[in-house]
Nucleic acid binder design. Structure first.
Length: 546
RNA sequence: GCCUCCGUAGCUCAAUUGGCAGAGCAGCUGACUCUUAAUCAGCGGGUUCUCGGUUCGAGUCCGAGCGGAGGCACCA
């Protein structure tokens, strides 16, 4: 959009009427100021490179009580002497930038509150202490403008630590009407659609993204310390495999190729095992064409790990160590910034999550699928007669025609999962083989698979498996799975022959793990919605056109 | 895909049985050298999500649509 020029307002009546209407508009008022800055003050309101900036937290930390007192004494002395020859100011000087979030004009004093990613800091300007053009700019600033302020770190008479600014530059004039300064921006729809406003209006939103970054960084370091190699595998695949989920589809023009966005990196990571990389992990996006709720976003970040000559128990130790360390670090971070909702000892943190207080102390809980089932319904999961009766009793219509073990799982999800203590990280081990076709059966009891799932706060955080590496069995299971799929599933399921070929080349036995990174971030930052921990969660376009 | 609730000024929210669409903040003009949601005086700001219907009269009631929140379903 082009800037109206000063001559616009003198043209024909229709144009003048429009301009008058614009004058009542919040945006128009800001354009007016933009013009003022350019034409009256001769400023370039969209700035340029500035060196030597420190963030606002650093600036605040620069404040020196003794220097402040010395300066006060100097001032008093000068007043007494009637001597206004300036002495050397003992206060440390800083140069910082930030977004104006408050603007108070008291006549010959102007107070600004600046915000950056480290917090807020007041900038004070006195007409007497700064250049007239600086002061004129200070009076014209709006909530939302991006400025650079420089001057000595001092304190106001009321005790507020501030920059007593004698240098002030505008580097970006904000033309958008700002959110309300006290209630802020709370409408979730606007918050997520206009996240750039949310982030500066709600410090908690920025904190969450900073925490997310640190958590993922720590995950990476943890994996690297254990000699895992980070890899990246295709997100666009001609066959989306590695999970049972609906993929998104897309199209490659030059190759005239139907492609799917990946639903899991598993089959490619395993190919790397075959290729000779014994410990690999990937932290990246998966895409699943499914519903959206507090714990599901169509694109989500997962960490998947494979370790040659490991098994699901290797992965259990890895997961417990990782999550425990992340929880301790998150608790420590939050405590050090004064978060009083964090409880528990440093080595046994308790983090709030909604109504829950999640106790992260080691070891995590472990319960077998079979025991939990027995505890929930009072009979053994292998008792086919009792299972059939229970299905009827529960009115699980869709389970009635099912094979025994699928019916067991329906009952498990209905009756047993709710028994898991949501306030404790809990590994559920020993899933039935029949519902874990791609997992190696337990040699001691082939009815059970070497697989576990970890649940926290009622959310599934991730599964781990002792992977199958026999190509014949894998092929048979894949084929069986395909045969069992209904028509809807058939549409997006297919057999990855190349993956079978890779297994024929020979994959070492391995443990595999998948963790939902967004959900881990939710738990460690106390955010109840996955959208809070994703910078730009999926939103339907406002015009509804798709 | 289904159910329930919600959509009023830039933001946060009011508006009685269906009876002139309001407030605070933000904005504009002016005053003010220590503000802390600054204060004081004055001024402006609306497609009540959209379309249709009932009615003398609709923000309010009815229908459809759009968007959001919560729940369900889907979801190794």
């Amino acid at each position: 959009m082009s800037e109206p020029t000063a001559s616009d307002s003198t043209s024909e009546p229709a144009a003048r009427a429009a301009t008058e209407a614009d004058l009542r508009d919040l945006v128009a008022a800001r354009r007016q100021k933009l013009r003022f800055l350019r034409e009256e003050l001769g400023l370039q309101p969209y700035g340029c490179r500035v060196d030597g900036l420190v963030d606002l937290a650093t600036a605040r930390a620069t404040f020196d009580e003794a220097a402040h007192d010395a300066h006060e004494a100097q001032d008093a002395q000068e007043a007494e002497d009637g001597n206004d020859e300036s002495m050397v100011d003992p206060r440390p000087r800083v140069l910082s930038s930030g977004r104006v979030i408050q603007h108070r004009d008291i006549g010959k004093l102007v107070f600004l509150r600046l915000r950056d990613e480290t917090g807020d800091l007041q900038v004070s300007l006195s007409k007497k202490a700064c250049d007239p053009s600086v002061f004129r700019l200070a009076k014209k600033l709006d909530y939302g403008d991006v400025v650079v302020a420089g001057g000595p770190m001092g304190r106001t008479k009321k005790g507020e630590i501030c920059i007593w600014s004698d240098r002030l530059e505008i580097h970006s004039k904000s033309l958008a009407p700002p959110p309300e300064k006290w209630h802020g921006l709370s409408d979730p729809e606007i918050r997520f659609r206009r996240r750039y406003v949310d982030l500066h209006a709600n410090p908690a939103a920025i904190q969450t993204l900073q925490d997310r970054s640190r958590i993922i960084s720590r995950m990476r370091k943890f994996m690297e310390n254990r000699a895992y190699l980070e890899v990246e595998t295709p997100m666009m695949q001609s066959m989306a495999g590695g999970a049972a989920a609906r993929p998104f589809t897309t199209h490659h023009n030059a190759l005239d190729l139907e492609l799917s966005m990946r639903i899991a990196p598993e089959l490619y990571l395993k190919r790397l095992l075959v290729g000779g990389l014994p410990r690999v992990f990937e932290i990246n996006r998966n895409f699943r064409n499914e519903g959206v709720d507090r714990s599901h976003n169509p694109e989500f970040t997962a960490m998947e790990v494979y370790q040659a000559f490991g098994d699901c128990w290797t992965m259990l130790e890895l997961t417990e160590s990782l999550l425990y360390e992340l929880a301790c670090a998150a608790a420590s971070d939050r405590r050090s910034r004064g978060d009083e909702t964090v409880e528990g000892a440093d080595d046994a943190p308790v983090l709030p999550f909604g109504e829950l207080k999640i106790d992260w102390k080691r070891p995590f809980e472990q319960v077998t699928y079979g025991d939990l089932f027995q505890r929930a319904v009072g009979f053994d999961m292998r008792d086919e007669v009792a299972v059939r009766a229970k299905v009827k009793e529960l009115g699980l219509a869709k389970a009635e025609g099912m094979d025994h073990w699928f019916a067991v799982n329906e009952i498990f999800e209905e009756c047993a999962e709710p028994l898991i203590d949501p306030a404790r990280p809990t590994f559920v081990t020993g899933y039935p083989s029949a519902i874990s076709p791609l997992t190696r059966p337990d040699p001691a009891d082939p009815v059970l698979a070497e697989r576990w799932d970890i649940f926290i706060a009622g959310m599934e955080i991730g599964p781990a498996y002792t992977e199958l590496n026999d190509p014949e069995i894998q092929l048979a299971k894949f084929t069986e799975q395909l045969a069992g799929a209904d028509d809807e599933e058939q549409a997006f399921r297919n057999l990855d022959e190349d993956f079978i070929e890779a297994l024929r080349v020979g994959m070492p036995p391995a443990g595999g793990l998948g963790l939902g990174v967004d959900r881990i971030v939710m738990l460690l930052t106390g955010n109840l919605s996955i959208r809070e921990v994703i910078a730009f969660p999926l939103m339907r376009p406002e015009d509804g056109s798709g």
